[in-house]
Structure formats: structure tokens, C-alpha cells
Design a binder for these strands. Structure first.
Length: 675
RNA sequence: GCCCGGAUAGCUCAGUCGGCAGAGCGGCUCACUCGUAAUGAGCAGGUCGUGGGUUCGAUUCCCACUCCGGGCUCCA
């Protein structure tokens, strides 16, 4: 029998009999690899284990723990989910079911209820689905690959309109291929034919799919958990039917699954909404309305510290501070284009000052600050010598966010932007953007975020963009070169721009690896035109300035929320609402404790005292739960020697520390903005 | 805006198959005076999210609304 020669990633080659598969190759390397192999890549393309190898193929065996192996496990689990739902809900049909980060989902449409609308899944249904999935897994159904002519596939999937759309190429499925004329399928034949198989000519379950898959349902699957059910629009389009989406997570082992579930718990424990209440930072009283926060004294203090530091840095960087009102007549937003492009995001107008006919003037709450800053620019003739003119405001704006999207402090209806508009000459734009990006990143690092990437949002095909192609191209180029100069990774986001211009957004990764959109830098040639802005150049002629819109925090509220989660509520000393808590051991140490707190406050530290009305242990416990950076315990020894017992957050207790030394230590930390 | 789920004391939650509402923590009072993550006892605190409907009777069943959570769409 002829042999095939296969090359491996380490550069070695192996000879196998003709007809050998990926699985045979793994077995020839070793029994452990044979067992661990989920799929293989052949010349870079992922293939099932039963794929027949050809002479000269370069093959890599993919194991369960690898990203590709996990992807396969999640993908195969999604198929099992689909089979289970189709089994349990006769008449149900299915759409797409790709693997996603940490798991998978599948979208379904259930047969109509008595009221004629498609039925929905409830969380109780998830338990039944879970049970059915485990039965299918225990059955050990193979995943059987096949290529069907499209005509034949249309017959097989006749009862599944979403699949027909995919076969016809009208809908995209990230896990399906619809090559001209044929489609690939994966069948899971059941051990016993189903009573009412929903596919013509197949006794069990079959799905359109590019693959590859695990060899059988009892290989590598089973370490999964269904997480939630949610609505999702077919093809992500809000004008199309709402499907029922089931999300799950799946891993290579029980230990990995458990570790993932623990990570979710940890993330929940640092949720800023939970910590906001626990640490008495802010709240969202129902009486005020959705997405409208109040900051309590401690949250207000932290917020003021964030803002104060930002203000100082902006002053040093040549920004000038302005203020503008919260409401304005409609005309301003007509000129700016907001009422044309952004009206959906604005609160409806108030009609004031009716005339004799009863017709009043419409006022709007501002959704953005830019038109106001523009009016400041336009308030008098500007010289090129004034440029770049950088106008900064902590500007509170209101946006009528759709009711389903508000989320803690990260998506609100009333927010304060650390907003600035830079008016510059066209030839200053590139340089200004570059130094601006450096300034942004530098400042974010001071707040403790240091892992970034950039996103470049450009104009898409849609109609929602104002202005000429040329202006967009210029602006986009300027942003791209500033981004390149930063050396950070740049992810494209076509179609993500605001109506008036492209933007770079800075995405920051927090302490547990989640990314948040923070700063935005936008180039705008539209508003200067709309407001007919100009300045007088060195040549004595009028020129049109370019505007750069930028916010570093994005919104103060979101930034605050992100920092709470980043630090898990344990703010660094410079931001902590209470930096030092003094705990006298007994009543007769009260006077000493109070003198210490006075001294600390005189040194510019935020210190308080909790007297001995409760046991020391409990007072320490409370201080720890409040995440106070320094708990000082003072007793007889300390009164006698002028020392303190230092119990630092996350560190070891140290007795008999001299007060001066302690003050110097903490003041140093605050100055360096660490810990 | 759409789909699913929820709202009971300041917080976390139990409970009522329709018949006067419960716990722990927290708060207050008293006692304890204590050296590094929960001392004990007592007291107060709820028109069971809001408004309608069904009913002899609704916190419980139905409807609408408000607010919250998880998604989709959208977004700082």
C-alpha cells in the first residue's frame, strides 16, 4: 500500500499508510495525543479527526485546551443544544449557533402559542433543555460530515426557513459555508430514530455547518452550563423577527468550567452597582428616573478628586475652562444638525414663552456640549495666533437612551462629560491629535489604567453621515497617523463614526481583563461649516478651522464606574474617601486617637476615628469592609511612645510605628498616586 | 424600543395554594472597656414598587405603568 508523508509543526515528518486520517496520525504519535486530539489543522485549515490525509500535508493536532479545541467543543455543544431544543419543542426551528467567547449560543423560533405569536423560552425551560442535552451527550452520537447539493439541502431543511435563507446565501452564518451549488452538513444520527424528525430523510438531527466538530457527542462535551435565555433579532436586525437565544458556556474539563464560574462570581462581586451601594458611593433613586444617578458624600468625594486632578492636568496642557447652560432653543441644534441626525437620542422639547397665538419657543436639553463651545469660539473674531484654542468643560448632557440599554453608571441618561473642543488650523490637526493622544493615555495611566488598545471608527455605507468624502478621508488619515504614532494596537470599526466625523476611541482593559470604551477623539469638519466658523490667518484672509472633539473619561459617571470595578472598590490611597481610620483600643485612648486624626487632617489626609463603643475586632472588620487603606489601632503602648499600630489594606500589621514616619509614608503614596 | 425575569424592612432574602407579614445584617438604647475581620440583651422599622380590575376579602390572581437585572438593537 502506498504511503503518505505528513509534516508536523516541529518540522519532522511521518509516514502513514494511504487513507490515514487525522486521528490515525495522532495515534501514531502517541496514545495520549490520540486521546487528547479534538480536531486537526491540515495546511492551516481545521479538519475533523476522520479527515483523510494526502501526501505532503502539513498537519497540526489540536487538543481540547487549545483555543481552537475549545472553539470546537463550544461549537459542537451548540449543535447538541439545537438538537435538544428541537426534540423538546416540536415545530421549533433554528437559526444560527456559533461559539462565542467562553461559550456558545443558538437562536430558535418556537411554534406559536394559543395567541398566535411564537412561544418564548423561560428560565425553567433551560433545566429541561440541559437534561435533554446530557442525554444526547451520553448517547454518543457521531458527528457525520456530508456535502449536499443545494437543491437537496433545501428539501432537507424545508421546515426551517432561517436555514433556507442561509442556503440561498441571503443570510450569513459564521459557522456555515454555502459554496456555489453545495452545502456542508453535520448529522448527529440518534441511536434510535426520533418519532418526528424535523428533517426530510434524516432520522435525527442535522445542521448546516462548516465544522469541524468533535468526533461524537460523548467525546469532550459535557462540561457545559446553560447560562440564560434572551431575545435576539434574526440577523441582528431590529426590523426582523425576535428569536429566542440560549447562551451557554462550555469547557474542556470540569475544573475549567468551575474556574470560569468562579471568575463570573468574582466579576459580580466587583460590580460597581453592588459596590456603589455597599460603599455608599451613589444610587439611582426610582423617584428620579431611569439612568439618573445621585452621588452620595463618599462617591462625591472620589468624583471630585477625579475631576480636580483632571482639571489641573488640563490647565497645564493649555486648556481654558468654560461653562454652558443645560438647555437651549431648538435653533442651535438645528444649525448643528443634532435635530436632523441625533434627534432619537434627545429628550423631547419643552415649549416655553407662548406668543399671542399660543405658539411657544422650543427648548431642548443638550445631548452634547459642542454647539455651546462653538458659540464661544464665534463670539468674536479669532486670530490664527489663538489657535489651537482648547475649550474645556465638565458639561452635563442628557440623552434619551432607549429604555432597555441603561446600565448602572456605564450607560446613563444624564452624564457629565469631561468635554473639550479644540479649534485649530487644518495643518495643525495632525500634530494636535498626536500630542492629544499622548496626553490622554498619560492621564489614564495616572488613574491606574495602563492596558489600552485603540479603535478607529470610520464612516460606513449608511446615510447617517454628513459631509464630503474628501473631508472624511482627510480626517480619517489624520486620526490613523496619530494612532500609528502611539504604537498601540488599532482595531477598525467601519460605520461606527458620529455623524459629523470619524473618531479614535481608547479602549482600556481593567484589572480582570474586561475592556471598556473610555476616551474618544473625533475630528469634525462639519460643525465649523454649519456654524460658518473662521479665523484670520497670517495672510489676512479668513480660514475655516477644524474642530477636534474629545473626552478622556468619556463620561465622568462611566469612568467612575469603571474605576470602581477596576479597583474592586479599593481605591488607591489618593482617591480613597477615608484614607486613615484611627481605632482607640479603649475609651481612655480616645483623646490620643482624636489628636492623631487632627494631625492627619492638618497634613492633608482624610482621617476619622471610631471610638470604642464596639469591640476592636468588629471595628477593624467594618473598616476592612469599607476598604479603608490604613487602619490604625492605638492603645497604651502607643499613647506612651507616640506611635501607632498600622494595619494596612492588603498587608501585615506593624506595631509601634512612629507617627511622623507613618505620615511621611502615606503622604508619599498620595503624591505618587499609588496603592 | 424588543424578548425573558424580577420588585416584600435601610441591605440580602424567606413567605402567603386569596384570610391581620418573617429572618439575618444594618439602625437606636442599655450593659460590656476590650491590641488587629462579627460581645450580649432589648427596641424601633413594612399602606409587600404605583395605579386600576376581579373578589366578601388582593402583598398573593388579571391589566397598565414605573424601576431594576440578563440579552438584542443602539452607545460615552
Amino acid at each position: 500500500m502506498a504511503a503518505v508523508t505528513i509534516s508536523l509543526p516541529d518540522g519532522s515528518t511521518r509516514s502513514l499508510p494511504a487513507g490515514a486520517t487525522v486521528a490515525d496520525l495522532a495515534a501514531s504519535i502517541g496514545p495520549r495525543l490520540a486521546k487528547a486530539a479534538v480536531i486537526g489543522t491540515v495546511d492551516g485549515v481545521e479538519r475533523d479527526l476522520d479527515w483523510t490525509l494526502a501526501d505532503g500535508d502539513a498537519v497540526e493536532i489540536v487538543t481540547a485546551e487549545s483555543p481552537r479545541g475549545l472553539y470546537t467543543i463550544r461549537h459542537s455543544t451548540a449543535h447538541v443544544l439545537a438538537q435538544a431544543v428541537l426534540d423538546l419543542f416540536p415545530g421549533a426551528t433554528f437559526a444560527i449557533g456559533p461559539p462565542v467567547e467562553d461559550g456558545f449560543y443558538y437562536d430558535f423560533s418556537l411554534p406559536p402559542d394559543a395567541d398566535g405569536r411564537p412561544a418564548t423560552l423561560s428560565s425553567e425551560d433551560l433545566e429541561r433543555i440541559d437534561v435533554r442535552m446530557r442525554e444526547i451527550i451520553a448517547e454518543g452520537q457521531p458527528f457525520v460530515r456530508d456535502e449536499l447539493p443545494s437543491d437537496r439541502a433545501r428539501e432537507v431543511f424545508a421546515a426551517h426557513p432561517f436555514k433556507l435563507e442561509i442556503i440561498d446565501g441571503a443570510a450569513e452564518d459564521p459557522t456555515s459555508v454555502t459554496e456555489a451549488g453545495t452545502v456542508r452538513t453535520y448529522e448527529n444520527p440518534p441511536s434510535r430514530p426520533k418519532e418526528h424528525p424535523p428533517f426530510a430523510g434524516y432520522p435525527g438531527f442535522i445542521d448546516l455547518c462548516r465544522g469541524p466538530h468533535v468526533p461524537a457527542t460523548n467525546r469532550f462535551l459535557g462540561h457545559f452550563e446553560l447560562m440564560r435565555v434572551a431575545g435576539a433579532y434574526w440577523r441582528g436586525d431590529e426590523h426582523r423577527p425576535m428569536l429566542q437565544r440560549v447562551y451557554g458556556t462550555a469547557w474542556a474539563s470540569k475544573a475549567d468550567l468551575d474556574a470560569h464560574l468562579r471568575r463570573l462570581e468574582e466579576a459580580a462581586a466587583r460590580d460597581h452597582r453592588k459596590l456603589g451601594a455597599e460603599l455608599d458611593l451613589f444610587s439611582f433613586p426610582d423617584e428620579i428616573g431611569s439612568g439618573l444617578a445621585v452621588f452620595h458624600p463618599k462617591g462625591g468625594l472620589v468624583r471630585r478628586l477625579l475631576e480636580d486632578y483632571s482639571r489641573r492636568r488640563h490647565e497645564q496642557a493649555g486648556y481654558e475652562f468654560v461653562y454652558s447652560p443645560h438647555i437651549t432653543k431648538a435653533g442651535l441644534f438645528e444649525t448643528s444638525g443634532h435635530l436632523q441626525w441625533f434627534a432619537d437620542g434627545m429628550y423631547p422639547p419643552m415649549e416655553l414663552d407662548p406668543d399671542s397665538a399660543g405658539k411657544g419657543t422650543e427648548y431642548y436639553l443638550k445631548p452634547m456640549n459642542c454647539p455651546f463651545h462653538i458659540l464661544i469660539f464665534r463670539s468674536r473674531m479669532r486670530s490664527y495666533r489663538e489657535l489651537p484654542l482648547r475649550l474645556f468643560e465638565f458639561g452635563t448632557v442628557y440623552r434619551y437612551e432607549k429604555s432597555g440599554v441603561v446600565h448602572g453608571l456605564t450607560r446613563v441618561r444624564g452624564m457629565t462629560q469631561d468635554d473639550a473642543h479644540i479649534f485649530c488650523a487644518r495643518d495643525q490637526m495632525a500634530g494636535e491629535l498626536q500630542s492629544l493622544l499622548g496626553f490622554v493615555l498619560d492621564l489614564l495611566r495616572d488613574y491606574g489604567l495602563d492596558d489600552f488598545h485603540l479603535e478607529l471608527s470610520t464612516r460606513g455605507e449608511a446615510e447617517k453621515f454628513a459631509g464630503s468624502d474628501e473631508d472624511w478621508a482627510d480626517a480619517t488619515d489624520a486620526l490613523r497617523s496619530a494612532a500609528d504614532a502611539s504604537g498601540l494596537e488599532l482595531v477598525p470599526d467601519p460605520g461606527g463614526a458620529a455623524y459629523y466625523g470619524p473618531k479614535i476611541s481608547v479602549q482600556a482593559r481593567d484589572a480582570i481583563g474586561r475592556t471598556w470604551q473610555m476616551s474618544t477623539l473625533q475630528v469634525d469638519t462639519q460643525l465649523p461649516q454649519r456654524f460658518d466658523l473662521h479665523y484670520v490667518g497670517a495672510d489676512g484672509q479668513r480660514h475655516r478651522p477644524v474642530m477636534i472633539h474629545r473626552a478622556l473619561f468619556g463620561s465622568v459617571e462611566r469612568f467612575f464606574g469603571v474605576l470602581v470595578e477596576h479597583y474592586a472598590g479599593a481605591f488607591p490611597t489618593w482617591l480613597a474617601p477615608v484614607q486613615v481610620r484611627v481605632l482607640p483600643v479603649r475609651d481612655d485612648h480616645d483623646a490620643y486617637a482624636s489628636r492623631l486624626a487632627d494631625r492627619f487632617r492638618a497634613e492633608g489626609l482624610r482621617a476619622d476615628v471610631v471610638h470604642a463603643e464596639e469591640k476592636l475586632g468588629n471595628r477593624i472588620r467594618r473598616a476592612k469592609l469599607e476598604k479603608v487603606p490604613y487602619v490604625l489601632v492605638v492603645g497604651d503602648d502607643d499613647v506612651e511612645h507616640g506611635t501607632v499600630g498600622v494595619n494596612p489594606r492588603g498587608g501585615d500589621v506593624e506595631r509601634g510605628v512612629a507617627v511622623d514616619e507613618f505620615v511621611a509614608r502615606v503622604r508619599g503614596e498620595v503624591a505618587a498616586r499609588v496603592a
